[in-house]
């Protein structure tokens, strides 16, 4: 538990540092809320007055903590362009991105676990060799290109979905899911390839260790040795990878959202960047960082549960 607390504190400190750096960066970039409100060709006196009124002339640290406090309470500021609360803009788009990431993640684990175990168990066999080649190909194809291929094959040739015809989950859940599944496959495929490769290698490596010989000497059959002894050890590196991948899926769907014309966080991020709508960009960046850090924290905790040696290393 000491270990969990330590990781939790580390997580808080990391979040604090990131938010500080992001706030600092946006403070240094020219342009602020007053300028955005009044436009560039305004008399300097009116600008200065508004700045004073909006509290933009206060010391940096004071403004930072102010911003941080409102951020934590869910007030992410106001969009320069739409004059709407950033929180409302993001919250309405967040479910699409999160659901997509979760579905991609579930596809990835559900496929790579059995395939990885199978190839490890039959390593060197014909199917293993075929899968190794397929993996190699999958890994070298970037997911947006995978998206284009999937759009072409499933959307245009087999007509399983209408490319570009995104259905909102609010109007039609089934329609939404049957559309979203294809971008999710595009996101998951390269990651499946990577985790199959890692899991296979990890299992094969573990199977050579001395404790496996001990397990056989007690009368375990191959399956018991695999599932009761090898797998838990072999999963340790895989879980690290999965943690990184979950974070990557949450933040990395930006490109795929473009390919499949999905109105998620990625869409707002891109438009906000092009309009220099800083509060929105800032909020999304901090949220992304937050997600990555929290995911890492969860991975560390799972790690500590699986591998009893971790707790000692932390002390």
């Amino acid at each position: 538990m000491k270990y969990g607390l330590k990781k939790f504190v580390t997580m808080l400190i990391t979040i604090l540092c990131i938010s500080f750096l992001v706030y600092l960066a946006f403070d240094v970039i020219p342009g602020d809320a007053a300028l955005a409100a009044l436009g560039t060709d305004v008399e300097p006196e009116r600008l200065a007055a508004l700045r004073e009124e909006m509290g933009l002339n206060r010391p940096f640290l004071e403004r930072y903590f102010d911003w941080l406090l409102s951020f934590v309470t869910g007030d992410f500021g106001t969009s320069y362009k739409y004059n709407l609360p950033v929180a409302d803009m993001i919250v309405s788009k967040l479910p699409v991105t999160v659901i997509m990431a979760l579905i991609s993640f579930i596809i990835m684990t559900a496929v790579s676990l059995p395939v990885g175990i199978y190839t490890a168990k039959h390593s060197g066999g014909r199917i293993d060799r075929v899968i190794t080649v397929v993996n190699q190909i999958m890994m070298s194809v970037p997911h947006f290109f995978m998206g284009i291929i999937i759009t072409y094959v499933f959307g245009m040739v087999f007509k399983l979905f209408t490319p570009g015809g995104f259905v909102s989950y609010e109007t039609d859940i089934a329609g939404f899911l049957s559309y979203i599944i294809f971008p999710c496959i595009a996101i998951a495929l390269p990651k499946i390839a990577m985790s199959v490769k890692l899991l296979r290698g990890s299992c094969v490596g573990e199977a050579k260790k001395d404790y496996v010989r001990t397990a056989y000497s007690k009368g375990n059959n191959t399956n018991k040795v695999l599932y009761r002894h090898v797998l838990k050890n072999a999963m340790i590196p895989v879980i690290t990878l999965w943690g990184m991948m979950l974070a990557d899926m949450l933040v990395g769907s930006i490109v795929i959202e473009q390919v499949f014309n999905i109105p998620g966080i990625g869409r707002i991020l891109l438009t906000s960047i092009s309009y220099r709508d800083y509060p929105v960009v800032e909020a999304i960046i901090v949220l992304i960082a937050f997600v990555v850090v929290v995911t890492n924290f969860c991975v560390d905790i799972i790690y500590g549960i699986i591998d009893p040696r971790i707790n000692v290393g932390a002390e």
Binding site: D210, T214, Y216, S217, K232, D307, P308, R309
Partner: peptide, 24 residues
Amino acid sequence: LRKVQGNDIGIIFQEPMTSLNPVK
């Protein structure tokens, strides 16, 4: 063989540090 292993014949090895499963 499995019926005999661990039941009628036990074995211990040269490498005590690595012969036990680290996560069990």
